[in-house]
Amino acid sequence: MTAVLIIEGVAIILLAILVVGLLRSNADVLRALHELGAGEPGTRTTGSRHQHPAPQREGTAPDVSGSTLSGSAVHVGVTGTGHPTLLAFLSTGCSACMGLWEGLATGVGRIGGDDTRLVVVAKGPEAESESRLRELTPEGVSLVQSTEAWTDYEVPVSPYFVLVDGPSGSVIGEGSAGSWNQVTSLMSQALADAGTGRPDRIDNGELRADAELRRAGILPGDPRLYHDERPGNGRGMSA
């Protein structure tokens, strides 16, 4: 009888370990799916600098080389420029891209300010329909066909957007979005997070609110910072 109880106990422990392992595995899968935007169509927010394309080439974003629809060899400077560049990785075959193609002429002016340069990057002629690209690309929009750029930036899905800071060559933000409004939102947030024009900090990194309080003569510990005028009691959490 004792032996049976011991065997049962061991079996229960093993089953418990198995269940825990399965739960952890499931959690990993769910986490990965979340990062890929599953369940939130068109709103993958890999955002900011945490997942930028390979801190490759000594941490700077690679320039884009490829061809134009007229067959020219072209090179677009992305790093070392005086302006940000928004790379829009679009394809003619993805349904989520259609609205973005249609909105190309008007939808991007607000992203990162007027000096942000938009470059549409499609895959090379071996993977894209050039005639369809001609139909979809508005006049005056820069389009480069470069499968290499898709590889360099490790583009996981289309549509996909990468905003590069020109002077530093660092990727400010990236992600997938299904509309230009979402692109604007995604990249504006990334710009704010990156610190360029960050609204809550000033040049020396000090919180803007702290600086304004200091100028008003309100320093850390000032009783006026606390609702009950007792410093150090829980930062204004009193009733």
């Binding site: 090179h75 790093t79 070392g80």
Partner: peptide, 22 residues
Amino acid sequence: MVRSAGIDVAVPRGWDAEIYQR
């Protein structure tokens, strides 16, 4: 590097380049 029509150009950092046929 941009190459076309027997012309190679090492493009400096931050520059744009294009080789087209007129």
